[in-house]
Every structure is written in C-alpha cells, then in structure tokens.
Design a protein around this nucleic acid. Structure first.
Lengths: 420, 420
DNA sequence: AGAGTTAGTTCGTCTAACGACCAAACAAAC
DNA sequence: GTTTGTTTGGTCGTTAGACGAACTAACTCT
C-alpha cells in the first residue's frame, strides 16, 4: 500500500494573545508528538469507532507509533476502548472512540437581550444549553462582566458535579474584538474598550482553563465548520442576520481575523450609495438595507426594540406565509441587497460556501433563492466560482456552539490536557 | 536569556496541485529537520550577515543544532561563510550570508501587449530583467504557450551558462487561475480553460523544476510581502491598477486563494449601482469606475488601445502636473471610487496594508490622499482598523518579481534543493 | 601573561518515529 | 478437530535529530 506523500511542512502557531512578530517557531520532538497526537485524535473524531490498525493504515503512521499515541490519548482520557469486532477474518480489532465523559468545553454567547451558554463534550455533543434574559444593552460593562461570570461559574460547577473538567471557556460578543480578547467596540451593547477576556479571567479567579473572547460571526463560522454539514470545506463565510450583519471568514480551514482582529465587518460595507442612514453615521450600509432593522421598522408599528426581536420576526414570517404583499416585497428587496453583499464576498474571497445564520434562517424561504441568484449574477467566476449560498441548520445558539467549538479546536490542534 | 515560547504547533502542507481533502499530515523527524532548516534560512535572509551564535540566540534553537543545520545548508549551497568579525571581545564569529551564486528563481509575467521575465537569486537580487513585446491579446493560446516557453528556455539557458540551477518557474497571468495552474478565464488575453502549467511543462520537456501558474495580483502581493518595505506585516492586500483591477489577498502571512483559486476579483464588485457598463456585462464595477479604462476613455481621443497604455498614462500624468482641471477632476473621482473599494476590503479583511500597484503608482500623487480618506471614512473600526493605504515601490515588473518570489517561498517553506 | 568573553564543536542523553518480528485471536478450509 | 491464513496489536532494536554540558578556539582588555 502506498504511503501518503509527505510534503514540505511548516509549523504554525495558533494562540490568541501570543506576541506578534515573533517570527517562525522552530520545531522539536514535542511538536512532532503534539502534531501526531492531534492527527490521531482528529482521525478518531471523524472515523469513530475505528481500530489502531485503521488509524495506521489511513494516516501513514507506523503501527507501533499509533499504539504509543493511542496509549497516550487514553492516558489523557481523550480516547476510550470499546468492544471488539466480530465475525471478521483475523484477530478482532479493539475499537476506539472519543471519551465523552471526562471533559467539557464551554461557550457563552452574549447578546443585547439574552445570553446563551452551552457546554459540549469532546464529541461535540451538547451537555447543557441555557438561555436566559440578560440586560446587556442597559447594563454597564462591569455589571455585564459580573453577569457573564456568574453564568460561567454556574456552568463550571455543574460540569464539576458531573465530574467533568472544563477545558476552556470562550465568549462570543457582537462587536469588534481585538486579538487579545478585548472588546474594542460593541455598539449594540454600548461597550467600548472593555478587556472582557481579562476581566472575566479576574472575576473567575484563576479558573484553571483559558478564557477567550471572540466575535460572534467568527464563532458562528467555527460552529458551521465543526457541526455543519460542510464536510471537507476549507473556505467558508458565515453571515449573522441580526439587527447588525457580521461575517466570519474561514480561509484554508482557519479563521482569518485580519491584522487587528476586525475582519468580517460586512455590515458597514456601502451597498446603496446615498441610501438610508445607518447608526454608524454612514449611509446605505449592508446592515440598513439587508439587516433586520430595516425590515422591522417598516413592518412593526412603533419601531424595533431589540429585546423583542424574536416575536417581531415571527410576525413577519406569519405575514409572509399569509402572502402579505408588503412584507413579501420588503423581503425581496432585502434579499436583493443581501445577495449583493454575498456577491462581494464571492468575488473577493471565493468561498465554497456562504452560510446564512441568525434570523436569516427563519426568513430563508423568502430570501434564499433571490439572494443566491443575485450573488451568482454578480460573481465574475462562472457559477460563482463554485460558491453555494446555504442556510444554517444550527439554530440560535450558533455563536455559543462555535465558542465551545473554539475550545475543541485548540485541543484538536495539539493543546491536550495532561495525563492523569 | 529566555527561550522563545513554544506554542502548540500544527503541520500544514503547501503544494499547488496536491490532492485535496487528504486531511492533516502526520509529522516525523524529517519534518522537524525541514522546518528548522527553513527557520535558519529565513533568519539568515532577514539578518544577514549573522553568526551561528546569533541564530541560536534569536531562534531559541540549541547552538549544536544550529551548527548542524548550518552545515546542512552550506552543503546544499544555500548559505556561505564570509569573513570573521573583528575588534570585538571574545572569539570572532564567522559570519553567514545567503549564497547568491548557485541558484535562480524565474518569474514570467504575461500581459496583453508585453511579457516580462525576471530571474532572482536566493537573496532576491535581480539577475536579469527582460521585457519584450508579446502579441498576447491576438495570438491563440497555443501560440502564447509557445512564446512563453521560448522565453523560459532562453532564461534557463542563460542561467545555466552562469552555472546556476533553476529552482522553479512561475508564470503570472491576468485572469482566473485555478489551483492546478489552469487559466479558467483571462478576458484580456482571450483565454478560456487553458492548462497553462501543464502545457508549459510539456513544452519545456521535463524541465527538472516545478512550473507554476498564478494570478498576477496574487503574485504582486507576494512581491510586496518579500521585497516591499512592510516588515513583519502578515495581512496585506495588493491592488493591480491596469485596465482591470485585481486584488491579491495575504492573510496570516500566506496567500489566500479561496476554494477554487478565484479570490481577489475586486474589479467586478459593484461600486456604483447602475453605473457605466463593464465588459463583463454588469454595471458600475470597480474596474469601470476606478480602472484606467474609464480614465483614458475620457482623456485620450479615440479610445484606449491596450498596447499603448503606458504613453497614454504618461500623457494623463503630464496634464495632471500641468493642472488640467478636467484630468484632475477625473482623477479625483477615480480616487473616490477606488477608496470605496479599499473601504470594502478594510471592513471585510482588516489588512494592515493595502498596496496600490500597476499604473496607480504613477497616478498616486493625485489619488492616494483622497482614496485613503475615503477608505478611512468607510471603515467601521476606528482608524480603519490600523489599515494603511500605500503605493508600491516595485515598479512594473511587480507580478514577475512576485512570480519569482513564489519560487523562493517554496524554498523558504522547506522545499530545499538536495546537497551536492 | 593572564583574565575575561564570546564562538563554535564534541559528546553523551533523550525523545519518539520506524521497521521487523511475534504472539494472540479469529475464520475458513480440510 | 486440526491446520492454514489473516489481521491485530505489542515488543524490541534502530535511527534521526534536538538538547545540554563540557570543551576548545580565538579574540580583547588589563
């Protein structure tokens, strides 16, 4: 059997908050070990249950090496042996699966009116999913930090009761988050320059696990990458459909945050020159012509209150289902503008998939086709360069799920818990 | 002294045309060696002349390891020892520099009317720079391949005469190039689905070095990254200013080509809805409102002929220098539209630098300030998220230079020539 | 001359991948 | 049942190569 080719390889580092410009890191044996442990872990995640022999055959690693790596992963309680295979020629194989019981990854999504917390095990299966009211828009950032920390503590104690070790906590915030986990600007929350990652770590008093903060669209993209139906996709853009619109950009399999961490601000791209004014001070931003604010302003009497977005969207859906021509027309216009934004993304980034998330999911029946058609008509590459426009199937907690996925990603890329 | 932190590391592969979806590659000792050889090579490139001790101190590698790695690189004729240091306390250091003499990297830039070939040594210093007329727009793709191959052969024999081994050849093409080096669409050249990389390799009959093809904007970005004055920048966008406008996108230190290789098609983003028609069939594309066609159509009687772009631009420059209000007004409008395009890039990708290349360089005195102001006014992040708009200093052969740089990049990332 | 300082090499240690071999455990053929 | 073949997974010795410590070399300064 042919061994998979070993190409020229290069080491990359993947930490939030590591000193920039330190240049390329040299490699030593521990890096090889970490890489191979991660390779085996990911293989089992994607092919469980599987045997050591399967791993060796598929990855090209030596059988002896695989045995050693698997033993290490079992020591660290990341893998578990299950039963043997039966009714096959030859010695039966002992099957391996991810051990779901000892660990938890926690994600919290902060929003204007509510707060979602999820915990998942190594397999990505949900352990808990809480959603509660949260006066994010009206509270001070200090109060908000206290509130988030409170929820985080409750999740952690719950996990501890289940005898699980928390591997990490990531918080999703709708706004500009820099690479150190500071929230530079979150207009809807009324935040500016809040060191959320630092403050949370302080509030949790040496939690023993990393606390990270990231943009909600970025984490939505990670959620799609891990939990969505996009097998093997390496280039994906996720769009949040809320009052604001944000993009999470994955290229070559990893989030691309830009120089300062502020990539994905598609909501303030000018789509309609001289169009309606945006709260950001400009006009015709994607957000005001394809966000939900514009839609609800014209369908809901008395304007939009962020705290009651969901029932208002539901009303729009009902009226659309009933065939209300005013609503259908507004949705069509929104879809057209959204498609223009997606067209820009397709031309500039050539992703394989653009995923619509947030409230766009509920509106999909009336906007997806038009938006896709608009995108395809605007992309220079024939057929949009292979770009598909699809709807997220992850529901509301997508960013929270992505926040947990970010913790799992750091495990997958070599940051393993120590053996017992 | 503190040793640089070793973060979790992950192996990535970096070949054009490697089978997709093969998953993460496991690492072995040869990968460690290749990585560290590349680390030393890059360090010397950036810090030459330097001693073994310098390398060890800065990279964190052990002195003994550095000695071994340097010996290997000298065997491969990539490094060379120069004189000793003098007048310093302690034993004098033997200084190391890149060995410029044994190798050459070749880049060829194909254009509608001309063809640029450059060869550089390991240091990136130019060995030759040819520019000759080339009936690209009017010839069949077969004739074009023959023409390019002819130039390539002449460059190779010239290099061979200088006792240099050619490490690789990259060809820059203005158009959509897929990940296998096929030109899918090059409107200005009149090409569609030309397997340029394959055809060239065939025409050169087993050349003994890799032949790659890439988009001109992508390679322009690589040229800026390597030869431009942007030390340490990891997120950069390069804009070609020709009749068409293209973008090369570098995020996290590497080109991001998108799912099919078609990223960077900024020229056909709609900037002015309902604006002037573009040859692509749409209206108001960036290319028609900020490309050179629009400018020249209105300043040069009788329209634009691609073959005579340069003198026509020179005339525009002269009239601008003379204060011609019509020209100044047109340039201001162009700058405004360009700035809107750059604003989109800044919002979506948050690069540290956007570099204007091509003929934008000549026009910079009249467009740079306005375009930057427009971009800054459109970026959501304060101060454009740190994004600067600058002018390329590389001159016309930028894409050809970038094509050669791509060859050097593959060396830098571990694809070293074998020892003698 | 001797002390101090810095550069680079040598040597032994250690990690971890690899190849070859082997025992265990089964199915199928006899 | 016995034998044969197949597959799994482990053991053992080899090997690549990074690392640390000790050592030698070559200079400056006093």
């Amino acid at each position: 059997m042919m061994r998979p080719t070993r190409n020229g390889a290069q080491l990359i580092t993947n930490t939030q908050g590591s000193a920039p410009g330190t240049g390329p890191q040299p490699a030593d044996f521990t890096d090889v070990r970490a890489t191979n442990l991660a390779v085996v872990l990911r293989f089992v995640r994607e092919n469980a249950p599987c045997s050591r022999a399967d791993i060796a055959a598929s990855t090209g690693l030596n059988k002896a090496t695989v045995s050693s790596l698997v033993a290490d992963l079992i020591d660290r309680r990341l893998l578990r042996e299950t039963g043997l295979t039966e009714n096959r020629v030859g010695r039966p194989a002992t099957m391996l699966v991810l051990d779901g019981s000892p660990y938890a990854a926690v994600g919290i999504e902060v929003n204007v009116d509510y707060l979602t917390a999820v915990a998942v095990d190594l397999k990505g299966e949900a352990l808990l999913s809480w959603r509660r009211a949260f006066p994010g828009g009206s509270a001070s950032s200090g109060q908000a930090v206290a509130g988030i920390a409170g929820v985080a503590r409750r999740v952690v104690t719950r996990m501890t009761k289940e005898a699980r070790q928390v591997l990490g906590l990531t918080v999703a915030v709708p706004g500009l988050v820099d690479l150190g986990g500071s929230v530079r600007l979150a207009p809807n929350m009324g935040w500016r320059d809040v060191d959320l990652a630092g403050d949370l770590a302080k509030a949790l008093r040496d939690p023993g696990f990393p606390v990270l903060v990231d943009n909600d669209a970025n984490l939505g993209a990670l959620a799609e990458l891990r939990f969505g139906p996009h097998g093997g996709v390496r280039d994906l853009v996720y769009l949040t459909g809320e009052i604001g619109v944000g993009a999470g950009i994955v290229l070559d399999g990893r989030l691309r945050r830009g120089g300062a961490g502020f990539s994905g601000e598609i909501g303030h791209i000018e789509i309609v020159p001289g169009g309606p004014p945006c709260h950001c001070g400009r006009r015709g931003c994607l957000e005001v012509v394809a966000g939900l604010g514009a839609l609800l302003d014209r369908t809901v009497p008395g304007g939009v209150s962020p705290a009651e977005l969901e029932p208002e969207i539901d009303e729009v859906v009902q009226r659309a289902e009933a065939g209300d021509p005013v609503v259908l027309d507004l949705l069509d216009t929104l879809a057209g503008n959204l498609g223009r934004g997606v067209g820009i993304v397709a031309n500039l980034l050539n992703p394989e998939v653009v995923v619509l998330g947030g409230y766009y999911v509920k509106l999909a029946p009336w906007i997806l086709a038009r938006a896709e058609q608009e995108m395809l008509g605007r992309a220079l590459a024939p057929g949009g360069g292979g770009c598909r426009l699809v709807v997220s199937g992850l529901g509301y907690g997508a960013a929270a799920l992505g926040a947990a996925a970010r913790v799992l990603d750091s495990v997958d890329s070599g940051r393993l818990p120590a053996p017992a």
